[in-house]
Amino acid sequence: MVRRRGIGMASVFYGTGYGNGFPDISSAIVELHPSGKATVRTGAVDCGQGSSTVFAIIAAEVLGLQVSDITVTTGDTDNTPDTGTTAATRQTYNTGNAVRLAALDALSPLLDMVKPRLAVNTVDGLVVRGGAIEVRGLPGRKVTLAEAVALAKAEGLTTMGKATFTAHTTALDPENGQGAPYWPYAFATHMAEVEVDTLTGMVEVLRVVAAHDVGRAINRAGVEGQVEGGVAQGLGFALLEEVQLNCGRIQNPNLAGYLVPTAMDMAVVESIIVEHPEPSGPFGAKGIGEPAILPVAPAILNAIFDAVGVRITDLPATPEKVLQAIKLQEDRGIVK
């Protein structure tokens, strides 16, 4: 058995949001309760990617609360506002912005209300943290959020904030494709380390170093989770997955015939979070959902080239294709 190692690099960019001038709109509602806790309502759907946790973090940060103080209600046409599709790597950026603004909107009347009580001349002299509104520089002088909400309710003030955020995008010119279709763009570089068995053509991905510019990580573990999932899905795209067709009919509509990576196929992932803040993002954040998968397959293909000197240009890079390419190269008398 002759196993050869190689390293491959791939860099990508990714325009997040709907793009091409499409209305890219998210709305959110944040309600403060007399318990001092809060509810976030958005139409966004947490499909496992962690959007609800991101919204809880953003609301908690703005309101000076803990994540456990926030309830997130999502995806119900009767009870949540429209936030557009949960797609296009747009929920952290778009709805995240809307949640941040809605939390500020909920807070604003409370700050005005407690201003005389705390004897400050401007709301800029107030800071919200640890479940209380306190005077900047005089942390002992404060009103708890719970008290403030109760007072506001007694005065007939609403403690519900709402906001809408729209992402910037312009349509492309149909003749030359010029325009500003997406904003913001995400960037990433992956390095894949593979071992190719030259007798069987099997490719084993040993390690993927995945560096992503996310602007700012709202949830660090969440970013890492998305990256690891992206590597798994990208590995499947590179080496395993293919819907096989015969006259338009799916030949392998099952998980015995359609191979997704298992834990046995998975590489070690080293996730590196690069935080180059995006000024228009909530706390500087951009999305991570889709960028996570993009560099994986090209990095693996480039690593196969580095290992055995054959360039696979037809995905997936099955053992048969890799072996055939190696044989072809040997026949030509080129041996790496």
Binding site: S11, F13, F187, A210, A211, D213, V274, H276, P279
Partner: peptide, 13 residues
């Protein structure tokens, strides 16, 4: 704004 590509290259490399 928000172009952190070279930092990702440098760190991953």
């Amino acid at each position: 704004s928000g172009v952190g590509l070279r930092a990702t290259m440098e760190k991953a490399g």
